[in-house]
Write a protein that binds this DNA or RNA. Sequence first.
DNA 1: AATGAATGAGCGTTCATTCAT
DNA 2: AATGAATGAACGCTCATTCAT
Lengths: 238, 238, 238, 238
Amino acid sequence: MAQKNYCISKETSKQPHNGSNPVNNVCKFFTAIPMQRSRPLQQAEPDLNSRILTAAQHLFARQGFEKTTTRQLAEKAGVAEGTLFRHFDNKKSILAAVVTQGWSEMLTDLLTELSEVASYKAVSKVMQKRMLHLHEHGDMMRVCFMEAQYHPELRERIETDVIGKMQSVTEAFIQTGIDRGVYRSLNPELVARIFLGMFMIAGFSQDTLTEARSPKEQKDMAELLADVFLHGILAPAC
Amino acid sequence: MAQKNYCISKETSKQPHNGSNPVNNVCKFFTAIPMQRSRPLQQAEPDLNSRILTAAQHLFARQGFEKTTTRQLAEKAGVAEGTLFRHFDNKKSILAAVVTQGWSEMLTDLLTELSEVASYKAVSKVMQKRMLHLHEHGDMMRVCFMEAQYHPELRERIETDVIGKMQSVTEAFIQTGIDRGVYRSLNPELVARIFLGMFMIAGFSQDTLTEARSPKEQKDMAELLADVFLHGILAPAC
Amino acid sequence: MAQKNYCISKETSKQPHNGSNPVNNVCKFFTAIPMQRSRPLQQAEPDLNSRILTAAQHLFARQGFEKTTTRQLAEKAGVAEGTLFRHFDNKKSILAAVVTQGWSEMLTDLLTELSEVASYKAVSKVMQKRMLHLHEHGDMMRVCFMEAQYHPELRERIETDVIGKMQSVTEAFIQTGIDRGVYRSLNPELVARIFLGMFMIAGFSQDTLTEARSPKEQKDMAELLADVFLHGILAPAC
Amino acid sequence: MAQKNYCISKETSKQPHNGSNPVNNVCKFFTAIPMQRSRPLQQAEPDLNSRILTAAQHLFARQGFEKTTTRQLAEKAGVAEGTLFRHFDNKKSILAAVVTQGWSEMLTDLLTELSEVASYKAVSKVMQKRMLHLHEHGDMMRVCFMEAQYHPELRERIETDVIGKMQSVTEAFIQTGIDRGVYRSLNPELVARIFLGMFMIAGFSQDTLTEARSPKEQKDMAELLADVFLHGILAPAC
DNA sequence: AATGAATGAGCGTTCATTCAT
DNA sequence: AATGAATGAACGCTCATTCAT
C-alpha cells in the first residue's frame, strides 16, 4: 500500500516548495458520504437536520449512544420525536451522520497545514496547532472513538474514509522527510500512526480520563507532545 | 502535587541502585476497592463471582455495557439471571467490579519493571515489554476506557486509583531521569502523561480502530513507539 | 318488516307478469348515504374523491383497514397525505364511504334480475349469474364483511341499507314462490337468508379461504350452489 | 316467530353400517401444531398460557387483531405486558396460537358424528347439531376467518390443517352417499364445499352481520339450512 | 385547493430487577 | 444459595392528523 523501503537521504533545501510536497497529491481526498434516508425529503429542512445532529453529537458524546434516548434527542434538538424519524431512518443512522459529518473539516485543516508546512522540522508546529483546535471537534471525536467500537460498519467507514486518508497523507509526508534526511530512517507507516496517535493522547488528556484541563495546561501538553515527537523522529544533528 | 522545578543535572552512574529508585517509595500503593453489595453474602461463592466478572469483562468489551443484557451475562457465566443479583447489587456494580479488578496486576507489573530498570535509557525496553503484554488486559482496558466516559463515578475511581498511581510513579521516575541528566529537562508531569498515553496508542493501534494486527506488526509498533519516545526525551548525547 | 304468514298456495302461471312480481314494490329502495365531511368543500373534487375511494377499496381489501396507512392510501391515490383529510374527516370515514358506495350497483343488478325472472324455477339462473359477477365487487365485499365485524356503526348501516333491503326483497320473492306452490312451504325469511348466504359461500370459495379458483371451477361451483339451493327449496314435483 | 316443521319425507333404508363409513379411514387426521416460542419455558405455566389465549380469542374476535393492543391483552389476561412475551415470541404468534388451538375439538366432533351417522339422510341431523354448537367456537372461528385474510401463513395453515381435512372427509362421505344412490350424482368435491359453506352461513347468520339471534331463531335457521341442503342433494325419491 | 413537514400519543417489545419457590 | 417466571417502566418507532405555506 505504501512505499516500504525508507532510507537515508539528505534534505538539501529546508523549503519544500509546494509542488514537491507529497501531501498535495492526496488532496481532494474524500467525498460526501450520504447516510440519511433515501426518501426525497433529504435536504428539505437543513435547519432541523443540523439541529438534530448537533444535539446528537452532544448527547452521544456525554452519555453514549445507547444511553441517549430518542426522547432526549428530540427534546434537545427542540423537535418532536417523530420528526427525528422524518429526517433519519432510525436512531443509528443519526449516529452514522454525526460520525461522518465533521471529520471533513478536521481532515482538511490538517492536510492543508501539512501541505503548507515550511520545513519538515516545523511538523511539530502543525501538530501543536491542530491539537489546540482538537476540542472544537471533541464531541464528534469522542463519539467516533467510542461508538466505532461497537458498530463495525461505522468503524469500517471511519477507517476507510478518515483514518486511512490521514494515514496515507501523513505517511507520504514522513517518507519525504526521511528521504530528505531530516527524519531518522524509520518505518513511515508506523511513524504516521504514532503521529496520529499523538492526537489521541492529546484528546484524551484534555478531557477524557481527566478533569477538563486549563488552556495553559493544554497548550503545554500540546507543545510537549509535539516536541517529544519531533525529537523522537529527527535525525541526529551531528 | 509533584515537584515543579526540573532541571539539568548529569547522571553519574548508569546503574540506579535499587535504594534510590524513586518508584519503590510509591509501591504498595493501592488497596482493594470494595464495590459489591453490603449484604453478608458477599463473598459467599467466589467461584461464581469471578465467573460472572469474566463473562462481564468479555461481553462489555465487545458489546459495550448498555448493549449487554443481564440475560447474556447470566448465560455466559452459566448462572441464572437472578443469581447475578445475589452477587452484585445491580448491573452497574458488575461494571464497577470489572473495572476495579484487574488493574492491580497490570499496575504492579509496570511498577515492578520500572523499579528494576537497569538504566534510564532502558525505559524503552519496559515500555516495549508492557505494550506487548497489553492485549492480555485488552478486554478490561477497553471496558475501562469506554465506559469510564459515561460513568463519572467510575472515571473518578480509575483516575484516582489507577491513572493517578501510575502517573505519580512514572513522574517520579522521569524526574529522576531528568535530575540525572539522562532526559531532557522537560515537565515531568506531562512527560509521564505522554509515557502513559503511549500505551493508549499501542492499545488502540492493536485492535481498536484497525483490524487485528499481526504479532510482528505489534512488535514493530511497540518498538518504534518506545524508540520514538526515548529519543524524544533523551538529552542530546553530544 | 316482512310479511310473516307464508303458506301453501299453488302457482298457477309459470310466467310472473311484471306487475305482480313483488320485487318491484321494493325498488327505488335506497338513497345516498352521506358520510363525508360537513364542510362545504365536500364534493369539490369528485375526481380525487373517487381516486381515493378506489385506492382505499383496493388496499383495505388486501391489508385490512388497520394495516393500511394513510401514507399508502395517499400514494396509491396519487395525492398528498394532507389531501385525504380535505376530502374525508378522518381515516374511518374513508372506510365508511368505501363500504356504502358500490353496493348500489350490486343491489340494483340483483333486484333487477329477480324482478325480471321468467319463472320461479329460474332463480337458480339469477343466482348463478350474480355469483359469476361477484368478483367484480370482490374488494368492496371483502372490506364490508371484514370491517363490519369491528365497526358497529358500519355494520348497522350495512345491515339496514343493504342486507335488510336484499333480505326483504328476496323474502317477498320467496314468499310468492311459496304461495304459488313452486317452493316448499318453508320460512321465507330464513330461506331468503340462505339465498343470500349462498353468495357468501360463493364469495369465500372463490378467493378467500382458498387459492384463487379457475373460471371453470367458479362456474361449476356457482351452478352447483344454485342447483342445490333450488332443489332444496323446490316443492316435490310429484 | 316462525312456523317450525314444514315438510315431510321418509327415509326407507340405506343404513350404512359403521364399518363401511368412509370417514373412519381419515380419522386420526391431524397433529398438534406447535407455534409458540422455542425457549424451553414453553409449557412452564399452562395456566397463564391459556389465560392469555382466552383473552386473545375474545379480544381479537371483537376488535380484530390489529386493534387489540398488547396492553389490553395483558390486562384482560390479568398478567403484566412483559409476561406475554415470555410466553409468546410476539403478538402475531399469539394470533397463531389462538387460531391453531380450538379447531381440533370442533373438527373431531364433526368427524366423529359424520362417522357415526346412522343413515346418509341423517346428514342433516349432524349438520344441525354442529351448527347449534357453532357459537361455542364462535370467537375462534371469527378470528380465523377474519385474520386469515391478512396473514397468508395463517391462511395456509388453516387451509391445510383444517379446511383441507374437513373437506376430504366430507368429500369421501358424500361420494359414498352418491355411490349408494342416496344423493344425486353431483361433484362430491363441490358438494363437500357447500356442506362446509353452510356452516359459514350459519355462523355469520348467528352473530356476524346481524344482531345476535335468539336460540330459537338459531335453531330454526340450523334446521332449515340442513333441510335445504339435504333436499338439495338427495336423489329424487320417485 | 393542495401540500407535506411536523406532531405526539400510543404502539410492540425489551430487560433490569424482584421474589416465591 | 440459586433459580427463573413475572414484572412494568421505558425504549425505538409509527402514523393519523394538523396547519403553515
